[in-house]
Amino acid sequence: MKIGNSPDGSASPPKAERPAARKPEAASTTDIVRQTAQAATSAPSAQVDISSAAKLAASAGADDGSFDAAKVARISKAISEGKFTVNANAIADKLVSNAQELLDSRVNKQH
C-alpha cells in the first residue's frame, strides 16, 4: 500500500484540485500598534514566585568561568571524526542518582 492511499482505493484529490485555502488578511500597522499598546497596559495574567532552590540553581549556572573550551573542542573533533561514543550506562546511573536525590529531598521536606 502506498502512503496516502486508503485501502478502499479512494484517494484524496491532487493538490491542484483541492479548494484553495483562504489567505489571512495582513494586519495594518495601526492594528499592530494598537494591539501592542493594549498588551503593554494590560494587567499581568499570572503571578510567578521563584523558589529559593530555583534562585540557587540560577545563580549556580551564572558565568563562573568553568567553561572548558579545550574540552568542547576535543568533543567536537571526536564527533566530527565519528569517534565520539556515549556511555549509556553512565548516563542511566547519573539519572537514577539524580532522581534518588530529588526524592530524598522531597521526603526530608515533608518531615
Score class of each variant (00 low, 15 high):
residue 1 M to R: 09
residue 1 M to C: 13
residue 2 K to E: 05
residue 8 D to M: 00
residue 10 S to Y: 08
residue 10 S to A: 06
residue 11 A to H: 14
residue 12 S to F: 13
residue 16 A to I: 11
residue 17 E to N: 14
residue 17 E to M: 10
residue 22 R to T: 11
residue 22 R to Q: 09
residue 22 R to Y: 06
residue 25 E to P: 05
residue 25 E to F: 09
residue 26 A to Q: 02
residue 27 A to R: 15
residue 27 A to S: 08
residue 30 T to Y: 15
residue 30 T to E: 14
residue 31 D to A: 15
residue 32 I to Y: 04
residue 33 V to W: 03
residue 34 R to F: 07
residue 34 R to V: 04
residue 35 Q to H: 06
residue 36 T to A: 15
residue 37 A to V: 02
residue 37 A to H: 05
residue 37 A to P: 00
residue 37 A to E: 02
residue 38 Q to I: 15
residue 39 A to I: 05
residue 39 A to H: 04
residue 40 A to P: 02
residue 40 A to D: 02
residue 40 A to I: 08
residue 42 S to C: 09
residue 43 A to M: 06
residue 43 A to S: 04
residue 44 P to G: 01
residue 45 S to G: 12
residue 45 S to D: 05
residue 49 D to F: 02
residue 49 D to M: 05
residue 49 D to E: 07
residue 57 A to F: 04
residue 57 A to K: 01
residue 57 A to M: 03
residue 57 A to S: 02
residue 59 S to W: 10
residue 60 A to D: 06
residue 61 G to K: 06
residue 61 G to D: 03
residue 61 G to M: 03
residue 61 G to Q: 12
residue 63 D to M: 04
residue 66 S to F: 15
residue 66 S to H: 15
residue 69 A to C: 09
residue 70 A to L: 03
residue 72 V to Q: 07
residue 72 V to R: 05
residue 76 S to G: 04
residue 76 S to W: 01
residue 78 A to K: 14
residue 79 I to S: 05
residue 79 I to Y: 05
residue 80 S to H: 12
residue 81 E to K: 11
residue 82 G to D: 05
residue 83 K to G: 02
residue 84 F to L: 03
residue 86 V to H: 01
residue 86 V to S: 00
residue 92 A to I: 14
residue 93 D to G: 13
residue 93 D to L: 14
residue 95 L to W: 10
residue 97 S to A: 15
residue 98 N to L: 12
residue 98 N to H: 15
residue 102 L to P: 02
residue 106 R to W: 01
residue 110 Q to L: 12
residue 111 H to Q: 15
residue 111 H to G: 14
